[in-house]
Amino acid sequence: MQQPSTDEHPVVQHAHPTAGVYLRVATILVILTVIEVGVFYVPAFHSILVPALLLLSAVKFTLVVMFYMHLKMDSRFFTFLFGGPLLLGLGMTMGLMFLFGAFALRR
């Protein structure tokens, strides 16, 4: 856990991005969504469907969290408050999938 400093701080508002940045992020998000749906429909991609879709959705997730939820500019501590439980949840999902045999090799 990061060591928070203890001196008295007035509550400061971190600078937020401009509308232009927001619009650009939105454009990327839409393009990625179109690619996702495209990948889903093109048979040639079926062998890499799962990793490709997971990657695309992770990128979208990160973009929204970094820019729209301002984690890129805001205090690192908020990233910890969000990222810690997020990783815990991810670990739990992986653990449960393993325990229920989702990763078992097909014989």
Binding site: H9, V11, L81
Partner: peptide
């Protein structure tokens, strides 16, 4: 008005 980490308490609780 006065926080140890310089962060808004409501925002911290919400995160």
């Amino acid at each position: 008005h006065r926080t140890s980490m310089g962060l808004d308490s409501r925002k911290m609780a919400f995160w």
